[in-house]
């Protein structure tokens, strides 16, 4: 199976500051995504995990060719998305679809579900011969009754609105679907419904799925691979089950152990992080995590760790990776 998506050293930056001052002083940028590399195959799911502000959404936008000031390489089907001329970007939109976080507000309140579902075809000048049949087909695909076609977004429940969002994303037969926090704000039962749907469709249509989330509980169930982001960099990436079993990066370990559960007495073995998340304007020297890392040593404060690859293919950036017992091995 070939990689559908290959990302190498992707950077995306934003200009900060403005007003009069910016006329006289050099421009300052923050790197929201700083050198990210990842691969995604057809029919697979990759979850990107990290706190708000860690660059997850910026990364996704850059992959979809919507990034601002992005550099590096995003190869989609062998073609560099970042170097695409404007005229070809529309074609890319057919292959890479986005499911937005807030399903209800991503649907125009003035449109009926039918109009919403036909909009992608209209934009791309691909209107099907029998629009009604197409709408029915799409609604059935996402498990909604055909009678939904006449409703407007406010008449849909949260779960239904998300299904319509999914149907819209799938309208033009994309190969890659990027779902930005597909379950944020949903309660657990509706959350399962949306994830099951995405998963079924992934199987049926052989889609590659990129899921952005900070909900670790769902990652474990839906993703083949996961990447953990911190300050715009991937600190660990590999097979989900491996990472859950033996996290190598201390941030991953802290993240996994902090996950609140309904079990009694798990709180004892937790790794508690001290300190604050550094600002992107003042990235710390050395390992950017050292200020909060419970295992940081002197070397971490000045020597930025390289990306290392474990025998099982897992990549991580840490000088002193954790062993199976949860303490640094070296």
């Amino acid at each position: 199976m070939n990689d559908l998506l290959t990302v190498r050293d992707l950077e995306s930056r934003f200009k900060v500051g403005g007003g009069l001052k910016s006329l006289f002083s050099p421009k300052t940028y923050i790197k929201a995504v700083a050198g990210v590399s990842l691969d995604l195959k057809e029919g697979q799911t990759l979850a990107i995990v990290g706190e708000s502000g860690s660059g997850k959404t910026t990364l996704a936008r850059a992959i979809a060719g919507m990034g601002e000031d992005a550099s590096g390489e995003v190869l989609f089907n062998g073609q560099n998305v970042l170097a695409l001329p404007k005229s070809d970007q529309k074609a890319l939109r057919r292959d890479v679809a986005f499911i937005f976080q807030d399903a209800v507000s991503s649907l125009s309140p003035r449109y009926t579900v039918r109009a919403l579902l036909l909009e992608p075809f209209q934009i791309h000048g691909m209107m099907p011969d029998d629009p009604d049949a197409e709408v029915t087909r799409m609604l059935t695909l996402v498990g909604l009754p055909a009678t939904m076609a006449d409703r407007r977004p406010h008449e849909l429940s949260g779960g239904q609105a998300r299904r319509v969002g999914v149907a819209r994303a799938l309208a033009l037969g994309p190969k890659l679907v990027i779902a930005d926090e597909p379950t944020a704000g949903l309660d657990v039962s509706v959350q399962g419904e949306v994830l099951n749907l995405l998963n079924d469709l992934r199987e049926k249509l052989n889609l590659a799925l990129l899921v952005i989330t900070h909900n670790l509980n769902i990652v474990r169930h839906v993703a083949d691979h996961m990447a953990i982001m911190y300050l715009g960099r991937i600190v660990e990436i590999g097979e989900t089950q491996d990472i859950f079993d033996h996290p190598k990066h201390p941030y991953t370990a802290a993240l996994l152990s902090a996950n609140p559960t309904t079990e009694v007495d798990v709180a004892d073995g937790r790794i508690r992080l001290e300190g604050e998340v550094p600002s992107l304007l003042a990235r710390p020297p050395g390992c950017e995590f050292h200020g909060r890392c419970p295992f940081a040593r002197e070397r971490c404060t000045y020597d930025p760790p390289e990306v290392r690859t474990a025998p099982d293919g897992r990549r991580f950036t840490c000088h002193f990776p954790l062993g199976p017992d949860g303490t640094p091995t070296e």
């Binding site: 429940s157 657990v188 399962g192 474990r220 169930h221 996950n259």
Partner: peptide, 23 residues
């Protein structure tokens, strides 16, 4: 049912998460 749907409650990795049917 709500508790059973919580993905954190399911120890084994599953591709199919439980849901509460109906509207």
């Amino acid at each position: 049912l709500l508790f059973n749907c919580d993905p954190a409650q399911i120890p084994e990795r599953t591709r199919h998460l439980p849901t509460i049917g109906g509207e």
